[in-house]
Design a protein around this nucleic acid. Structure first.
Length: 276
DNA sequence: AAATGAAACAACCGCATGTAC
DNA sequence: TGTACATGCGGTTGTTTCATT
């Protein structure tokens, strides 16, 4: 039995009523207490942490506070472009499985990703006056946003890219993958980016298919894709999208969003997952 | 400067799952 | 095998911050 364990094998925990449990925002003092306790004894056994640290909190509350806020690895602040792309992709595959998505975004918590999705993506769906799970929203993403984005990926890939992984290395990496690819200049773009978001991939069968973050400013009918005859560009789309005035994160441009580094990063993450 | 509404973030709750006994 | 407890997850709600009028 280790030191930690010996600390915790003890009396039955008092009920919440008996404990006079504190709720609501954590104070700085509570944070320090929890941090110090976990630093000494390690994570886990949260009910014991709550009891022995002197915090009048539940084990659940301690765990949540530690995982979402106090953990040293936690990254706070703006979700980067790469992360936005990953969230979009992974959510299209797994639906609202936030913790699973979070595993692919080091330092980000499921709670943060969930909040991001709710506040940003669902907002966009609201602007479109449709549900994020609706066909209209998926179609908008599938036939308008994504193609436009990919077109921009292609465009940006042809510009100098500094210290990024080379396009050649990237092509080598994906050439072994059994995927359909579209060549745009020196970079190949995987058409699975499209099919995943269409909700037809096998992985998405058990997941609720949802859609895209602030992937806007995307309407500009890309010529690189074949649209189904039945799909009318612009049908039911908001004027912001149709006019290309739907801004990203308060003005961030699509150009900056889709550079070669982002594509490299995104693809790496996805293929690693596919083959794990 | 104050009021109001929207957006972002933090935390709680209930349920599901895992594990030890 | 059944039970109790701990932990993890996703949905929801409460609170704070920021922008607009």
């Amino acid at each position: 039995m280790d030191v930690y364990e010996s600390c915790f094998v003890s009396e039955t925990p008092p009920s919440e009523e008996e404990m006079d449990v504190r709720k609501g925002p954590w104070t700085e003092e509570e944070d320090l207490t929890l941090k110090a306790f976990v630093n000494i004894h390690g994570e886990g056994r949260w009910n014991s942490v709550a009891r022995l640290s002197g915090l009048k909190r539940t084990g659940k509350s301690c765990r949540l506070r530690w995982l979402n806020y106090l953990r040293p690895q936690v990254r706070r602040g703006n979700i980067s472009l790469q992360e936005q792309l990953l969230i979009l992709q992974l959510h299209s595959r797994w639906g609202n499985r936030w913790s699973k998505i979070a595993q692919h975004l080091p330092g980000r918590t499921d709670n943060e990703i969930k909040n991001y999705w709710r506040t940003r993506v669902q907002k966009q769906a609201k602007q479109l006056k449709c549900d994020v799970n609706s066909k209209q929203f998926r179609d908008t993403m599938r036939y308008v946003w994504i193609p436009r984005l990919i077109e921009r990926i292609c465009a940006s890939s042809e510009s100098p890219s500094g210290q990024q992984p080379s396009a050649a290395a990237y092509s080598d990496h994906i050439s072994n993958m059994n995927t359909n690819q579209i060549t745009c200049g020196s970079v190949q773009v995987d058409s699975s980016v499209m099919t995943e978001l269409s909700g037809t991939s096998s992985d998405s069968q058990d997941a609720q298919v949802s859609s895209v973050s602030n992937l806007t400013e995307c309407y500009d009918a890309p010529h690189v894709w074949n649209y189904p005859n039945s799909f009318q560009i612009g049908s039911g789309l908001s004027s912001e999208i149709l006019e290309g005035t739907w801004n990203i994160d308060g003005g961030e441009s699509m150009e900056s969003m889709w550079n070669e580094e982002n594509i490299w990063f995104l693809r790496q993450q996805l293929y690693e997952d596919d083959f794990n």
